[in-house]
Design a protein around this nucleic acid. Structure first.
Length: 875
RNA sequence: GGGCCUGUAGCUCAGCUGGUCAGAGCGCCGCGCUUACACCGCGGAGGUCGCCGGUUCGAAACCGGCCGGGCCCACCA
């Protein structure tokens, strides 16, 4: 099972050395102190000689630098750290790197503003470039264009500071990351991995280029992938428009009348009675006088609009499908800037049509719509007034204008979107993957089943990983896309806009007979889908890769199952024929007290570092660990206070448990010395807790594990410790030894149970009396603790003690009050337990006189006829 | 339109495959400075488990419907 890690300390059930328990215990400063100690010891360094079976590897999500970390990050990263610490204690060699995502729009924008520059890949690299200014966020003004290489350098320079801040936060939170293994998604190595993986996809035919209509953001002027879509409500209006048929007008309804010049067909359902006589005939479009066929297609819905639709190239994805399946002509009128194309199309033949178009040319779709509607009114082809409606429109998740559909040349990677067998294979991969919680698997299945095209990976942006591709130019200077020029893998990373393909010279760039670079960059997911390969050394360190891949765990948010998780599965399936990891842990959202998703602005009011400073890291971790995977959790200060209380209790209870006997007298952690019934019962109960908590953690249920340990611990403190302390204080005797040994053994186990959630408090206590770090100590096992005693003895004795406390409480007297005589009514089920612990019960309840046991029917013990002697007031 | 999650004390949540399951903590009320802890301890009050049916000897739990909350998907005429 669990292999022995070379750096685990002495076995737990041995004798300890001298104890050094401070007089005053405190959590103040533990985070800094232990972070420094752990760093000095290289405590979390990954031992790369470990075999794949010994390794537990984690594909950590790289947070976006240039954004700020918020409490949601603290929440989910704590979940991962709990897993890492647990697995490390179980004897696995934990591979737990940290990455920074600096390859994307947020970083691009930030670099632009901070340095006053703009990326222009057509420029050559300038070695001595100095940005116009630094720290210019908020400034506006002209931005100096710089080469992509210069831009990336500035990005790396800027993100260094962010990364320092992020690392400081993670260290303070206690993440047991191996800080020598950090990566950046924009680094040369990441770019090389992304390019190499792409070249392999290309060689195997999994990546391809196509000229096709696709979703296009007119603001960012880039193609957008299905995974980046967001449907939003968008106001519109139905316009009832007349087409001119041989037997009179044919009315359609449209929300996009400005696309009238792009109309290629009218389409109705094949079974629709109303339009049978029109199928096969043509009508003429209003204003533009184009001959339009009336066609049948099953996708037309009789009860939608007029039941007959205007198909344009392209108004929506249905249009694309009709265009493709009915082999309709292409009549695009919307350009990449979202405006009506300037050139008057050749399919408009009449004078009036051409004049109408010229009025629209160069207009935004919005103003073109007004112009067309005005024209239709003028000619009487608008039937009635437009009817306002709310409709769903597709938006780029970062954009604020509805997407258009334009035709462009793009790169795609096959992901099962148009290939049944690949889709089945990827669904099978999903089934193979252990989702935690398992219902998250459905999201994966829904997404994969609903794909309607391959993965569009090219973006018309300037900052990012460029496609490692050039094209030869023909004698007219036109690129020959079907004859790409590719680098070899050992040349990577390359930037085709500054590097030159083999067989060419730099001065042949852009000239007929020369070459040209592919202008596009890759989608950020095309890089981040390769985090296992990047961090595992796929390209440069095959030995390491063989020891960590396929990885064990991908922790991530539920919102990026369709992007990060799925794309990583796709890449791994295509490249390695396997899953990238065996399990995924999906964390939920943090909700603010109004049950809304915690917003960035609100998250920034409470900074994570401020939280950690105010409440302590263990407290914040406790709050995070109290929420199950996949479940949204409330941002609750109260829960952090409970965590802090627990951490302090661990310190105090430990101090007490270690205070019996002389400090230089070794504590024997030997269960054979535990002879008193209640002590053996306590250990038996702890054995159950160890079993159940271990099973829970193995199933990624850290919440359950924590709850079990915590519940046991509070009973341990409130009842068991109270019951046995007088005995533990006593002169040397087997009973005293039994209590002391039981306390030490229980403490040793409890500290280890709490270590993944409360790394600082447990390490603090561990250092008082044990060698090494609790975080490299083996995870406890139940076997050495198991005794023949009934764990119920502790709760029976606790019930008796509670009864004695209650009479004092009801008499409004101090717990120090002596009882000189009392009758204890004991339910039959509790009787044996109470009897076996009677001495401890008397001591803890300060019963100095007669204690009579009477049979009772209630569920708990009840004390009656107590004679109470309050302690003399002291002053 | 389809799918997933969710609705248990004032609050945050446990209640796993139906029978000590009506719970915990916080908050609240009362008491207590007890040689670990006042960043504490002890005791107490609080809920017809969203609603309506059904299955069953028995349902917070299983099934159906409805209502509320959250999220995702869907061809935007």
């Amino acid at each position: 099972m669990s292999s022995e890690s070379p750096n685990t300390p002495a076995a737990p059930l041995s004798t300890t050395g001298t104890r050094q328990v401070p007089d005053r215990v405190s959590l103040d400063g533990v985070e800094t102190r232990w972070d420094e100690a752990w760093t000095a010891q290289d405590l979390y360094a990954f031992d790369r000689t470990a075999t794949r079976e010994q390794v537990y590897s984690i594909d950590t999500p790289p947070p976006t630098v240039s954004g700020s970390l918020h409490v949601g990050h603290v929440f989910s990263y704590t979940h991962t750290d709990v897993v890492a610490r647990f697995q490390r204690m179980r004897g696995r060699e934990v591979f737990y790197p940290m990455g920074w995502d600096d390859n994307g729009l947020p970083t691009e924008r930030r670099v632009q503003n901070y340095y006053g520059v703009r990326c222009d890949p057509s420029l050559p690299y300038d070695e001595d470039f100095a940005p116009p200014f630094e720290g210019g966020e908020g400034k506006s003004g002209p931005q100096v264009p710089v080469s992509r290489k210069n831009f990336v350098e500035l990005c790396e320079r800027l993100t260094v500071e962010d990364e320092r801040l992020f690392e400081a936060l993670w260290r303070r939170l206690g993440l047991s990351v191996d800080w020598s293994r950090t990566y950046q998604t924009v680094s040369a190595e990441s770019r090389a991995v992304a390019q190499q993986a792409f070249l392999r996809n290309l060689a195997r035919g999994e990546a391809y280029q196509a000229e096709a209509p696709g979703l296009w953001d007119v603001t960012f002027q880039t193609a957008v992938a299905q995974a980046e879509l967001e449907a939003r409500d968008y106001p519109g209006a139905f316009h009832r428009v007349a087409f001119h048929g041989a037997d009179g007008p044919v009315h359609i309804e449209t929300t996009r009348p400005e696309l009238l010049p792009a109309c290629v067909a009218l389409i109705a359902h094949p079974d629709d009675e109303r339009y049978q006589h029109l199928f096969g005939t043509t009508v003429r479009s209003p204003l533009f006088d184009v001959e339009i066929p009336v066609l049948a297609h099953a996708l037309a819905e009789p009860d939608k609009g007029a039941g007959i639709a205007m198909c344009c190239t392209f108004g929506d994805l249905t249009d694309v499908q009709w265009w493709r399946e009915l082999q309709l002509p292409t009549r695009s009128v919307v350009g990449r800037d979202g405006r009506i194309l300037r050139d008057t199309p050749e399919w408009l033949s009449t004078e009036s049509a051409r004049t109408r178009y010229e009025e629209l040319a160069g207009k935004t779709t919005f103003s073109a719509r007004e112009a067309v509607v005005a024209g239709l009114r003028e000619t009487g082809d608008l039937d009635g007034e437009p009817v306002k409606t709310e409709r769903k429109a597709n938006f780029y998740e970062k954009g604020d204008k509805p997407l258009e559909i334009v035709t462009s040349r793009q790169w795609y990677i096959r992901n099962g979107g148009r290939d049944e067998s690949l889709r089945e294979a990827l669904l099978a991969r999903g089934a193979e993957l252990g989702f935690n919680p398992d219902f998250m698997k459905v999201r994966y299945e829904n997404w994969v089943s609903g794909l309607n095209g391959d993965w569009l990976v090219s973006r018309q942006r300037f900052f990012g990983v460029p496609f490692p591709v050039w094209y030869p130019l023909d004698e007219h200077g036109e690129p020959q896309h079907d004859k790409p020029l590719l680098p070899t893998e050992d040349q990577l990373p390359i930037d085709p806009s500054s590097d030159v393909p083999a067989g060419y010279t730099a001065d042949q760039r852009g000239v007929p007979g020369g070459f040209a670079a592919d202008p596009d960059i890759m989608d950020t997911w095309a890089t981040s889908s390769l985090t296992p390969q990047i961090v595992g050394g796929w390209r440069t360190d095959p030995d390491l890769f063989s020891r960590v891949f396929p990885m064990d765990l991908r922790p991530q948010g539920q919102d990026i199952i369709r992007t990060w998780l799925f794309s990583t599965v796709v890449r791994s399936h295509l490249e390695h024929g396997s899953l990238p990891w065996s399990s995924a842990a999906i964390s939920g959202w943090i909700l603010d007290p109004d049950r809304k998703k915690m917003s960035k602005s609100k998250g920034n009011v409470v900074t994570p570092m401020g939280l950690l400073e105010e409440h302590g890291s263990d407290a914040v971790r406790y709050w995070a660990a109290s929420a199950r995977l996949g479940t949204d959790a409330a941002f609750e200060i109260g829960q952090m206070k409970i965590g802090r209380r627990l951490a302090i209790k661990v310190l105090n209870a430990s101090k007490f448990a270690l205070s019996f006997g002389a400090a230089d007298e070794p504590l024997a952690l030997d269960p054979a010395l535990v002879t008193s019934e209640i002590d053996r019962a306590m250990l038996a109960g702890l054995a159950d807790v160890v079993d159940k908590a271990t099973a829970a953690l193995d199933a990624y249920d850290h919440t359950r594990a924590l709850e079990l340990s915590e519940t046991f611990f509070w009973t341990f403190c409130d009842d068991y410790l109270e019951l046995v302390k007088d005995r533990a204080y006593g002169d040397p005797s087997p009973e005293t030894t039994s209590a002391r040994a039981a306390l030490a053994i229980a403490l040793d186990v409890l500290l280890r149970l709490f270590a993944p959630v409360l790394p600082f408090a447990t390490e603090e206590v561990w250092s008082w009396w044990r060698e090494g770090s609790v975080h490299r100590a083996p995870w406890p096992t139940a076997e050495p603790l198991r005794t023949s005693a009934d764990p119920g003895v502790v709760s029976a004795a606790g019930s008796a003690l509670a009864a004695l406390r209650k009479v004092k409480s009801e008499a409004k007297l101090s717990m120090r009050t002596e009882i000189t005589a009392v009758e204890l009514v004991v339910p039959a089920a509790l009787r044996p337990g109470v009897e076996s612990a009677l001495g401890d019960i008397r001591a803890a309840g300060r019963v100095t006189g007669t204690l009579t046991l009477v049979d009772g029917e209630a569920e708990t013990c009840v004390a009656r006829d107590a004679v109470l002697v309050p302690p003399a007031p002291k002053d």
